[in-house]
Each structure stands twice: as C-alpha cells, then as structure tokens.
Design a binder for these strands. Structure first.
Lengths: 210, 210
DNA sequence: TTGTGTATAAGTGTATACATTTTTAGAATG
DNA sequence: CATTCTAAAAATGTATACACTTATACACAA
C-alpha cells in the first residue's frame, strides 16, 4: 500500500461523494484505515491537494474542497475557454483511429450512465475528444477542473435528472467529430458545459437554503 | 525553518537559474543545506512539484523541469488563451485604485529590470493587470505557467537583449488600460507573449546545438 | 573500444517517537 | 443565556532509524 495507492483510493471515495465538501480528513484516521503510518498519508493528501480536491493548510487538518458560487462560475468559465479551444484543435487532426476511440468512449459513457457511474464515463468521453490534440498540459488542467466540479456534483448527487440530456449531447458531439465540423462541435460543447454549470448552481442554491 | 520556507527558498534559487533544468535535487543534500531532516524537504519538493517547477517520480530523485520545444509552444498557447481572456475581463472593471496599482507595478518593473531582476518585476506587473478581474483560480493557473516559463528563461539567461522592448510593451499596456481599450490591450498582450515565446524557442535551439 | 553484469554506494519510502500547534470541552464570569 | 478563559485531548510537523530501490563504478567479455 504505497502513497500513490492511498491517493487513488481516497480520490475514488471523494469522487463517489463519500466525504461531504468541507469535512476534515485527519491523517491519523486515514493512516489506521489504510494500515500505514501518517507519512504516506501526508504524501497522498499532498497529491490530492495538487489535484485540487483537498485544501491543505499548515498545522491544520486537510479539508475536502468546498466551492462557492463564484468558484463554480469561474471554474466553468475556465472549462469553457480551455475545453472549447482544445476541441477546436483536436477535430482538424483526428485520425480514423481517434474517431474509433471516441465511438468506444461514447458507448462506455452510455453504459456507465446506466450503471449509476455517470461521471466516470463522462470523463472518459471528454478525454477521448481532446486526446488527438496532443496537448498534455492543456488536458491536465482541464481534467483537474473537471475533477473538482465532479466532486461537488457527486457530493450533492445532482445527476439522475440530466444524464439523458447530456448523453444526447455526447452523441451529437461524436457525430460532429465524424463530420469534422469544429465550429458546430465547439458550439455544442459550449452549451453542454453551460447547461451543466446551471444545474450545479441550482443545486448549490437549494442545498444552501434547505 | 519550516517546509514552506524551504519551498520558497528553493523556488527563489530555481527562478534565479541556480539549478539547470534536468539537474537532480537529492533530499539529503537539501536537508543538510537547510539544517533539517529529509521530511520537510520532501514536503517542500511536493509543493514545488505542485507549482510545476520540479518533476517528482516515486523512488527517483526530484529533477528540475526541462521543457521541450513542444512544451514551450503549448505553455505559451495556454498563456495566450488565459492571459488575454483575463485581461479582457479585467479592463472593463478596473477602478481608479486598480489603475494606480498598475502604475506602481510598472514603475517597479522598470526598476527591477535595471537591477537585473526582470522576471520579478514582470510578474508583478502582469499580476497587477489581471487582479481587477478577481478570478483567483484563473490567475493561479497563469502564474504557474509563467513560473515554469520563467525558470527556463532564467536557466538560459535570455533576457538582457529584450528587456527594453518588453518594458515598452508594458508601458503601452498601461496606457491602454487607462483608456479602457480592451481590444487593443489584448492585441498588445498577444504580441508581447508571442515575442517572448520566439525568444525562448530561439534560445533553446542555440543551446541545444551549441 | 563498447557493452554487460555485478557489487557498492547513494537515495528514497516509511515506521516510530516526541515536540509543537490546534481543537475541543468544560468551567468561570458577565 | 451567551461569552471568555483554560486545561485536556487531538492533530500536526519533524527527527531518527531502517528496509528497499535506484544509481554508480568497476571488472570482465565481445
């Protein structure tokens, strides 16, 4: 059980919504849970902090990140900027192989959605869309942003009502990639992300009042 | 001497070009240098990895990041996208106070440039430009990117020939902010960054052959 | 010379122990 | 009842020690 294993296990739990945003993650508790000392737990928490899932402040307990409305607005603005740009770069250079990967990822995302595991499939599909651009750092920033958004969504369990709509968006995006229509694909992606942002913002509002 | 202090001291050294890209940073050596054990050094290296200045791989020594040409191209594409967008958001909401801060930062950058400390002043000026937008995550990504670019520039000591040109760009940007001309300011910033990228790419070429 | 294998050295990862800091719970006060 | 203060409990930061992995250097063979 290396520190990497601990980090991935914790990330899985976090993205499953096992810990509510704002809750604390004491090193000792995690250490006993994983049967190790606190040192590798510290490393794992540092990795999660790097991924943006956890807030770490010296001498204070690590906390699951909690996003304000402004944070959500900003995160989705960044996603719009970065994901649309990357998709526009990817589409013109997509090979037949890339398109097959996208088809496969689409099928997987449909499958995972039925399996109450929407986020996993969603991440897979979007990665497949952007991969042809071969921009590792660009992609990594996008995935960090999606990860933190996903954590909030998982925590409040927003999904069920919207997955069908979003799966339709995915299918549409897939078609536009096959046609090489970057302009329309970017527009579709934009509305896809804007819709997701609205849903998350609405959820945050209701949860705050209720 | 806390782990944060070690991180900032190391960052300072890195951005001064004290360690060439690709060189190793053994925990033990750093520990004895700072008079602490390896534990806080590990933490500091993790922080630097988070800032993108150091590559950390399990069981291997930490290394100063070394960017390929493709990495530089991608990093500056991201900076163009993110910095232009943020400047466009900042200019319409700049207050008189913000403009004064920009003037001050411009003076500082002129001063630091003469003091062989161009990078420091450059960072200050750009931060002042973007601060009015109040987008902490956006700004943080930009600063991470500038940091890694700055490390490469510092390592190869590219600056002296170009600082006058870049200071003129800064003055021009300052004026356009005062006039509230976002379009022209973004165009100016774009060429500013594209110019810097060219210089860095040229330097990498000559260093590789020579 | 160039490459391969191996022993040694160097370096990393983590458990344990303890000092320091933060958090918590309860008592005292208004 | 709410607030402030204080002492105990909990949690963190780091030094030391040791097992394990990686890097280095040297001998040897092609």
């Amino acid at each position: 059980m290396t520190s990497e294993d601990i980090a991935t296990a914790l990330e899985k739990d976090l993205l499953r919504g096992a810990f509510p945003p704002g809750s604390t993650l004491p090193q000792g508790a995690l250490a006993t849970r994983f049967g190790v000392s606190r040192i590798p737990v510290r490393d794992a928490l540092a990795q999660l902090a790097r991924a943006g899932l956890v807030d770490v402040t010296p001498n204070r307990r690590a906390r699951v990140v909690q996003m304000s409305r402004a944070d959500v607005v900003e995160a989705y603005d960044l996603r719009l900027l970065l994901e649309c740009d990357l998709l526009a770069r990817a589409i013109p250079v997509m090979t037949q192989d890339d398109l097959h990967h996208i088809d496969y990822a689409l099928a997987r995302s449909n499958l995972e959605a039925r399996n109450a595991n929407w986020s996993e499939g969603d991440a897979l599909f979007h990665s497949a869309l952007y991969a042809p651009a071969r921009r590792p750092r660009h992609l990594s920033i996008i995935e960090t942003l999606r990860c933190v958004c996903r954590l909030q969504i998982a925590a409040y369990d927003t999904l069920p009502a919207n997955t069908d709509l979003w799966l339709a968006d995915h299918a549409h995006l897939r078609d536009l990639c096959h046609h090489g229509d970057a302009t329309k694909a970017v527009a579709c992606l934009r509305s896809h992300l804007e819709g997701a942002r609205e849903v998350l913002l609405d959820t945050l509002s209701t949860k705050k009042t209720g």
